[in-house]
Amino acid sequence: MKARIGLLLAAALLAACSNLAPIGQPDIAKVISITDTHAICGVVPVNMLYEDSQGMRHSMSYRVLGDGCHDN
């Protein structure tokens, strides 16, 4: 019985993950804009607007360590 439950859970997880985009490098031909982090200290969200090699615009969000962390 436990084995069947495990198989059902694994199948459900596989089905849920099958719609995810493959992980890899994005097709970035040109960066249009990116969030300025020069005055922020700490981990902050960044948004980047870019154009791919086909001329389509996309946005990407990720987190970076801001550039405003300085020893005084």
Rank of each mutant, 00 (worst) to 15 (best):
Pro45Asn: 03
Thr37Lys: 01
Val44Ser: 01
Ile32Thr: 14
Ile34Glu: 12
Asp36Pro: 04
Thr35Gly: 00
Ala16Asp: 07
Asn47Glu: 13
Gln25Leu: 15
Pro22Cys: 08
Gly42Val: 09
Asn19Lys: 12
Lys30Trp: 10
Gly42Ile: 00
Gln25Lys: 09
Thr37Asp: 06
Asp36His: 04
Pro26Gln: 06
Thr37Arg: 01
Lys30His: 15
Ser33Gly: 02
Pro26Arg: 04
Ser33Ala: 09
Val46Leu: 03
Pro22His: 15
Ala29Asp: 11
Val43Pro: 05
Ala21Gly: 10
Val46Gln: 00
Ala15Glu: 06
Thr37Ile: 10
Ile34Phe: 05
Leu20Ser: 03
Ala29Pro: 07
Ile34Arg: 08
Ala29Glu: 14
Gln25Val: 03
Asp27Val: 10
Asp27Asn: 11
Val43Gln: 13
Ile40Asp: 07
Lys30Cys: 03
Cys17Asp: 06
Ala21Val: 05
Ala29Ile: 02
Lys30Asn: 14
Ala29Met: 02
Asn19His: 13
Asp27Tyr: 11
Asn19Pro: 00
Ala29Val: 01
Ile23Asn: 14
His38Thr: 15
Pro22Met: 13
Asp36Trp: 06
Asn19Thr: 15
Ala16Leu: 11
Ile28Leu: 09
Ala39Ile: 07
Thr37Asn: 09
Val43Asp: 09
Gly24Met: 12
Cys17Ile: 05
Val44Trp: 04
Lys30Ser: 10
Ala39Leu: 14
Ala29Phe: 09
Val46His: 00
Gly42Arg: 03
Lys30Gln: 15
Asn47Asp: 06
Ala29Tyr: 12
Val44Arg: 07
Ala16Trp: 13
Ala16Cys: 06
Gly42Met: 12
Ala16Tyr: 11
Lys30Leu: 14
Ala15Arg: 05
Gly42Tyr: 10
Ile34Pro: 00
Ile32Asn: 12
Thr35Trp: 05
Lys30Arg: 14
Ile34Val: 10
Ile34Lys: 06
Ala29Trp: 14
His38Phe: 10
Val31Phe: 04
Ile40Gly: 04
Thr35His: 04
Ala39Asp: 15
Thr37Tyr: 00
Ser18Arg: 08
Val46Tyr: 00
Ser33Met: 06
Ser18Gln: 03
Lys30Tyr: 12
Cys17Tyr: 09
Ile34Asn: 02
Gln25Pro: 14
Ala21Ser: 12
Ser33Thr: 09
Gln25Arg: 09
Pro26Ala: 07
Pro26Met: 02
His38Lys: 14
Val46Ile: 05
His38Ser: 15
Gly42His: 09
Ile32His: 09
Pro45Cys: 03
Ser18Asn: 08
Ile32Cys: 11
Ile28Gln: 01
Asp36Lys: 03
Ser33Arg: 07
Pro22Arg: 15
His38Met: 07
Asn19Arg: 15
Ala15Thr: 11
His38Gln: 14
Gly42Phe: 03
Ala15Asn: 10
Pro45Thr: 05
Ala39Ser: 15
Ser18Asp: 02
His38Gly: 01
Pro26Lys: 10
Val44Tyr: 00
Ile32Met: 10
Ile34Tyr: 04
